[in-house]
Amino acid sequence: MKIAMIGASGFVGTRLLGLLSEYPQQYDCRNIDLLPSHFFNEITTIGDVRSQEQMDRGLQGADVVILLAAQHRDDISPVSLYYDTNVGGMEVTLKAMEKNGCKRIIFFSSVAVYGLDKPNPAENYPADPFNHYGKSKWQAEQVLQRWHESHPEWNIDIVRPTVIFGERNRGNVYNLLRQISSGKFLMVGKGENKKSMAYVGNIVAFVKYLIDNVTEGYNVFNYIDKPDNNMNQLVSHVSKVLGKHIPATHFPYWLGMMGGYCFDLLARITGRKLTVSSVRVKKFCATTEFDATKAHSSGFKAPYTLDEGLARTLEFEFVHPRTDDITFKSE
């Protein structure tokens, strides 16, 4: 099976390429990305998902397209880049697929399409994105919906993962784990808000499951590793894995938001991208719990529990000596 990935030089794409490369007789993979790949550069072609010519050429002969390319950070400027890449890139990809006779696509969307503090939304929950990333992902899904109406024979699978973490990732979960493990962690709020997460080893295994088993129709799946931990439970688990007592000082929400606004002002004055912002404080204190019944009742069996994924990440990042400094930045 010839698989063309768009945007697979990043964190999830690299792990997905690593998994599929274990089955060379089954999958023939290629990667098209703006950046070279740390581990799979021999199958990587430099290309921009916004370029029709480059995508027309890059998707030749593909049986399945996996679209990972996206603008995803909280602080992208100008904001039009979210829509140029996340929505415009979808339109370009579909046209290139049609030109090349490819009728299967797996698209990485996001639970950001639901918005914040929603009551455990399943896939049929109304979209209510609160930021440009979520809005652009939802618009890209709408492009797919309209496309499928006129191309009902296509197989379109949409994955809406929650925040993804794992070895080598440098995003919000890593920053949180690093702060907790340092013993200097400041808990904003009571710590009872639940945080849904997905271990990268499980999300790429789910994509492989889709490639092999979900080959017809238009399908949308939330992906979350269950059960969800709240912040207090997460701190306790980190303490157990690392074998040390980790105090957690609680600060009221209003004080945390004031601090976030101060960092917003500092970032605007200095022009620097800071790890703390009002948006990130708001996201930290929000309950991010999503229903993943559909994915976990599809026949897919996650190879790791959530706690195993957290333990593997903590041991790789904070326990065992590193042999290289390769990391991937995300949210």
Rank of each mutant, 00 (worst) to 15 (best):
D48Q: 04
G189I: 11
G259Q: 14
Y23D: 07
I46N: 03
V159T: 08
Y218F: 15
S182C: 11
E98L: 08
Y82T: 01
F40N: 02
M187A: 04
H237E: 13
T293C: 04
G243E: 12
A62E: 09
Y82N: 01
P36T: 12
D128C: 08
H245G: 11
F316S: 08
L176M: 12
N172M: 09
V207S: 03
C102H: 01
F300E: 07
H151W: 03
K99L: 13
K184P: 00
P129Y: 07
T327S: 14
K244S: 08
E53S: 10
I105F: 00
N175I: 00
F40Y: 15
R50E: 08
S236T: 06
T45R: 14
D324H: 04
G47H: 10
H132K: 09
G309I: 04
L16H: 02
N175T: 03
N100L: 11
Y125C: 03
F130I: 15
T313N: 11
A292Y: 11
D56C: 06
L17R: 01
T85Y: 04
K194R: 10
V279I: 14
A122L: 01
L94V: 02
D74W: 13
P252K: 05
K301Y: 01
E192C: 00
I158G: 06
D75W: 12
L67M: 12
L144M: 10
Q54R: 05
G13P: 03
E149R: 09
L186K: 14
K301V: 15
T288Y: 08
Y199T: 11
F130R: 15
G101W: 02
K294C: 06
W154I: 02
E331P: 13
H250G: 07
E317C: 08
T270S: 15
A8M: 04
G7P: 03
K190D: 15
A127I: 10
R272F: 07
K95A: 11
T44R: 07
K137I: 01
C29A: 01
D225I: 04
Y23I: 00
Q233Y: 05
V276T: 13
V204D: 02
F284D: 04
L35W: 12
Q139P: 06
P227T: 11
Y174V: 08
K103Y: 00
L59H: 00
V279P: 02
I326R: 06
N232Y: 09
I203R: 01
S182T: 12
N155G: 12
L242M: 07
E141F: 06
E91F: 05
P129V: 06
E167K: 11
A96R: 05
K273D: 13
Y82D: 06
S109V: 07
I224E: 12
T14G: 03
V173Y: 11
